[in-house]
Design a protein around this nucleic acid. Sequence first.
RNA 1: CGGGGUGUAGCGCAGUUUGGUUAGCGCACCUGCCUUGGGAGCAGGGGGUCGGUGGUUCAAAUCCACUCACCCCGACCA
Length: 580
Amino acid sequence: MRYSESFIYTLKEDQKEAAIVSHNLLLRGGFISKLASGIYNYLPLGLRVIRKVSEIVREEMNAAGALEILMAAIQPAELWIESGRWNDYGKELLRIKDRGDRDFVFGPTHEEVVTDIVRKYAKSYKDLPFNLYQIQTKFRDEVRPRFGLMRGREFIMKDAYSFDADENGMDISYLKMRDAYYNIFRRCGLAFRSVEADTGSIGGKDSEEFMVLSKTGEDEIVVCDKCDYSANVERAESITKDEKGEELKLKKVETPNKQTIKDVCEFLNADERFSAKALVYKNEEGKIFCFFIEGDDELNEIKAARVTGSVELVMLSDEELKDAGLEKGYIGPINFPNKDIEVICDKRLENRNNLVVGANEEGYHYIGAKLHRDFECDKIADLREVKENELCPRCKQGKLKRIRGIEVGHIFKLGLKYSKAMKAEFLDKNGKTQPFYMGCYGIGIGRTAQAAIEQNHDEKGIIWPISIAPFEIEIVSLDTRDDGIRYYCDMLYDDMINNGFDVLYDERDERAGVKLNDMDLIGIPIRVVVGKKNFHSNKVEVSLRKNRDEKELVDIDAVFEYVMNLREQLYKELENIREA
RNA sequence: CGGGGUGUAGCGCAGUUUGGUUAGCGCACCUGCCUUGGGAGCAGGGGGUCGGUGGUUCAAAUCCACUCACCCCGACCA
């Protein structure tokens, strides 16, 4: 593409609306433009990147045996009612009506539609397994869109759905996708890691998220420094060294005006780890739960929601606590005052021989309390948030670290959830009707592109991995009025284009600084600069975006080959990128 | 949805506290000259009615009310 014939508009100044580098650079480089909150237009440069990422995804999906389809973006409400998600999905689901007042949704995901397609056609075990995927625009009416393409409301996603005859088959399909994902993110030049994940509202059994490691990531993940254990904090577990403590007699003590765990423990001269604090939540149906965890632990709300089978948990207000008959600051598990509230204890409490707990009476606590001796609860579960440096639950030796990541992909084993709800069935060898075992696999295309910038940039701009750069090579002509230089540049450009390479040729009548700075901002990996300075000695300058200090003067006749080698080398480097 | 903040030209901003001529600056854009290896210079020029609506006033970007949009922090997801 010749620059003068392109549609590239760069900005010198940082964009106010961008809170993170990658968003700022996408805007400044003229890759995207905002239309509304969380809704963006892809300009030529941005679209090229989206296409590059999509193509890598497509190649790897196809290589894994998946079949590309394209489903309708607008879906009838009936399917969502059938799956039960018309109610469960909530406000994030964009609902629209047609002229006949019939309900539709703009698809945020396609489990329902794909299941509907499959149940119509695939009737025999002989058809299985298969995996259908698409790359398509989705819409989720996020409460808080932010960071450009990172969390848009309208976004491009690759979603794949596997169908198998049995659980074993599903596991194999899942592993195939897992492999494909490793290939995809590696080819995109990203430092990433796959982590155990919570399944969230989509439901299902196992699931893993693919995280691009970045300080600005919205997700926190826990990794072991010895083995390959890694998990989203939402689900991470750990081994803690438990001291049981001395077994003491239960005793009620006065604790006037001491409501927080810290105050109480200080007052009683007790270790916070030997106390149980109460956290009271209600779920979407208004059902109330009281969780007891150790005084210095944090409740992991995701785990808590899963244990209670809730979609969402909200903390009770002071007033609601009072209405429930609970004494704020003094809530304890002994003689718990409200039988309608489910009481759940963190499993760590089982290991303590003496605990400080509230007495359900203003101004009093118990000391020396012990689970199963002095009190019982409805459930015991893992409720706590993992802390840094605790022991790895897998190798039992490494220490856990908390780092941040950007979730660019997510794979799930769905099992029978949708096939049962929507009666998607086939006949097995014995002529028996069976529901499909399903899996679903997503990749955020735009998010992946932006994550690449977050990971690869400097103060001048983007440093694209060659595989997803809008162009692989740029030719900058610094003396556009010199006939010899123009003739040479035109030739070189034509040569490269005719050989199928992606080249941006800057032949604008601008000063050198303007052109070079624009190119640095846009971030094209290989740069060829042709100017008087070297051209008269039959040389041009070639350099890489990622290392501008190493400029090579190449003989004008050898440039084509030199650049082709560089290009090949850059692609090869991607193959060597390891999982972070 | 709760909390905080911002809306003045395509982008970045000043002006608003204390109402008062044709609303200003930088970048970008157009014309000409000049310049051409890291965002040049000179001269000339086009573009906004100050997010919207209503009000107060002789007079509103500026004061008041309502409203909309956007951004940031929290609970959800690719």
